[in-house]
């Protein structure tokens, strides 16, 4: 979706010349799909989030109501988790950008002369997708466990305290999020950098700009669509991720994110309204944050 949007971004938009019934007919499956799998669940979620516990009801029994206090309660109970979700997602996005930009620049610009190398490196970026990300995350948990080679070596070099550990800490969760979302950052960056016209960089140099200034004033602005797309594709799923932070994967009791809270409320506590209210809050917060970000980044016509 995002990729296509950026590729056509520079084309002059062409309005259709006449309205056709066939076009409407062709749209129908898409609209039906959205109604059935997006709008209907969303309405249901909204209604659930306003439910009130049934009087003298058993666990998990709720009736439709307008119990907006649910939202206040969940924010009061889970504010740390909400903040943590966005904090971790932000950290992971920044880290992923720092790792991905040089990588994408190398593949998209430096490797242009060797198409084979370019293709090979792209395959390497995409290759992890061939294995379920659950398995890859579990593998990291093993690689970074207390008695693993990595951790014992770090301890032997006194880079880690003897009784310190990695799994179950915020670092492990941010590490996992960064690792899992790097391809989503690299690919959009690559698509914009690959089309970067190097003559602009030359022109910058001719106008006495140093390499850093050229990068800052020319390369970064030209690759902005890729940066925006990559950060969105990383930040949005990372904020809602519940796998990396889960206690069964890289997280511990003090790294639980919003997704984990929703899961616990839905599956264990059977507090469906709380789970639904948290989901709505997560969606709304992401929408607002992303809206602000896109507006600031000045690429709103790309969305």
């Amino acid at each position: 979706m995002a990729f296509a949007a950026f590729q056509t971004a520079e084309a002059v938009p062409q309005a259709p010349k006449r309205h056709s019934r066939i076009a409407l007919l062709l749209l129908l499956p898409g609209i039906a799909y959205l109604m059935l799998f997006f709008l209907a669940p969303l309405v249901s979620l909204l209604l659930t989030s306003l439910q009130a516990p049934r009087e003298f009801g058993d666990i998990g029994q709720f009736d439709y109501a307008f119990n907006w206090q649910n939202y206040v309660t969940v924010v009061q109970s889970y504010l740390p988790h909400i903040m943590r979700s966005f904090g971790y997602a932000l950290a992971a996005t920044v880290l992923a950008l720092l790792f991905s930009y040089p990588l994408a620049y190398f593949i998209g610009v430096k490797a242009r002369r060797w198409p084979m190398l370019q293709a090979l490196m792209l395959v390497l970026v995409i290759a992890p997708f061939f294995i379920s990300f659950l398995l890859r995350t579990l593998a990291w948990k093993q690689i970074l466990s207390d008695e693993s080679f990595v951790i014992t070596s770090l301890k032997a070099l006194s880079l880690m305290a003897p009784d310190a550990h990695f799994t179950g800490t915020p670092f492990a969760v941010i590490f996992g999020l960064t690792y899992n979302f790097i391809p989503f950052m690299t690919l959009p960056l690559y698509t914009t950098l690959e089309r970067l016209d190097l003559r602009y960089l030359e022109a910058g140099g001719d106008l006495y700009a140093g390499p850093f200034t050229v990068f800052r004033k020319v390369t970064v602005p030209l690759s902005m669509p890729g940066i925006v797309a990559g950060t969105l594709l990383t930040f949005i799923p990372a904020a809602g991720d519940y796998v990396n932070a889960s206690r069964d994967f890289l997280g511990g009791t003090d790294t639980q994110m919003m997704g984990n809270v929703i899961e616990a409320n839905f599956l264990v506590l059977l507090n469906y309204p709380a789970a639904a209210a948290l989901s709505i809050i997560l969606m709304a917060a992401i929408l607002v944050l992303v809206g602000l970000y896109v507006k600031r980044a000045g690429t709103e016509d790309l969305l």
């Binding site: 209907a40 669940p41 659930t48 998990g60 029994q61």
Partner: peptide, 13 residues
């Protein structure tokens, strides 16, 4: 119908 159906499917309790 879709809305009603989804509601029925997701009814809690």
């Amino acid at each position: 119908g879709a809305t009603a159906l989804a509601l029925a499917a997701c009814s809690t309790g």
